[in-house]
Amino acid sequence: MPHPGWTEFSFEGIGTRWEVSTPSPLSGAHRRRLLDAVEAYDAAWSRFRPDSLVAGAARTPGRYELPAEAAVLGPLYQSLYRLSGGAMTPLIGTSLERLGYGAGYRLRPEGPPLPAPRWEEVLDWQGTVLTTAEPVGIDIGAAGKGQLADLLSAVLNSCGIGEHFIDASGDLLNSGPAPGLDTARAPVEVALEHPYDPGRAIGIIPLGAGALCASAANRRAWGDGLHHVLDGTTGAPVRTVVASWALAASAAVADALATALFFVDGARLRREFDFSWLTVYSDGHAEYSTDLEGALF
């Protein structure tokens, strides 16, 4: 619980556990609005359900009208695709399925790693309109959980619940204190999970208003050294980075940049994004932005 005395609403959504904390209990109507937002997001973006929009794009090329949030998601992915030289891409879905991380959760590779198709050859993403030249496996997991946290925060704000804290299985969004109310409230102290031992922490970061998101090779890992952070240019898991954290004003940006740190140096990303960061490499060393607050052990 981020603050003493707050109440918590927990639920499952888009394949992960959510906890929404608020100063007062949420009404049934407020809870329903949150769950409806989760269902709408899942219906559009889940590659694990056959009736989703992206599942349709995986079967049939053509023109797809996406929800409003696509207008934010598209440019974010386009920037990170460019900065990473194609390594970070929303077209990684088929590559994940090749390694066993598909709707059936076989968790057994079906063959050697499969590089993702080149964006410029198969995909045109303009605002909320997606046009594909061939069937494509879209996976927006690198930013989707964070974006959904932002959408749930917007729902709470529209309900007049300006103070809230959202925990999406470790990806965190803190609204901060409402204007004029308890403005001295301390930031939430967040422990950074050790990439090789979930029972230990490698540091602590104070989270005020904003988002803190993480990506790690030990999360969604299976088989012989396989995990979900794949290089789109090779279709194989990244081996040089084992964990990363990003702090930004929005959870969508923090979530996306936490994954981008597996491919692009944080200092390079800082030229185009306003965020703080920490990256832990497989050789044991860590790099971080000079404005990162907190302590590393």
Rank of each mutant, 00 (worst) to 15 (best):
E8W: 00
V122C: 15
D150P: 04
R33S: 15
T240M: 03
G294M: 09
G15K: 12
T131I: 09
H285L: 10
G74K: 04
E39S: 11
A40W: 05
W119K: 02
N157M: 06
R108I: 13
P61W: 05
L173Y: 10
W222F: 10
M1V: 10
S276M: 01
W277H: 07
G210C: 07
S24G: 04
A217W: 06
G210E: 09
E19A: 12
A211F: 05
T22I: 06
L99E: 03
D283R: 07
L26G: 00
A209K: 13
D197Y: 02
P179S: 06
E189M: 13
E293F: 02
V242Y: 01
E293Y: 02
P23G: 07
L123S: 06
Y41I: 02
A103Y: 02
A184N: 12
A236C: 10
F262M: 08
Y288L: 10
F262E: 06
L123R: 03
E120P: 01
S46Q: 09
L269N: 01
P177S: 12
L181Y: 10
L269Q: 01
V188Y: 06
G225L: 07
R31Y: 02
P135R: 03
H227E: 10
A44Y: 12
P237E: 11
V136F: 06
D36Y: 03
G144W: 08
I205C: 14
L83V: 01
P198W: 06
A154T: 11
P25K: 05
L96D: 07
Y101S: 11
S10I: 09
V72S: 08
G208K: 09
A149F: 03
R82G: 07
G180D: 13
V190Y: 07
P187T: 10
M88F: 00
G127S: 12
A248G: 00
P112T: 13
D150I: 07
G284E: 09
L83F: 02
G62D: 13
S289G: 15
L296S: 08
A191I: 02
G62P: 12
L156V: 07
L173S: 08
I14S: 11
Y64W: 14
E193D: 07
S79P: 01
T128Y: 08
T290M: 10
G180E: 15
F297Y: 09
L114N: 00
G199F: 12
I140P: 00
L107V: 04
H30T: 14
L99H: 05
V20E: 00
A258K: 01
A184R: 09
E69M: 09
N174Y: 02
P61C: 13
R268S: 12
A58T: 01
V122G: 12
L152V: 07
K145Q: 04
R47H: 14
S153L: 09
T128E: 15
D167F: 04
V253I: 11
R32Q: 15
L192I: 10
L192G: 04
L91D: 00
G146R: 09
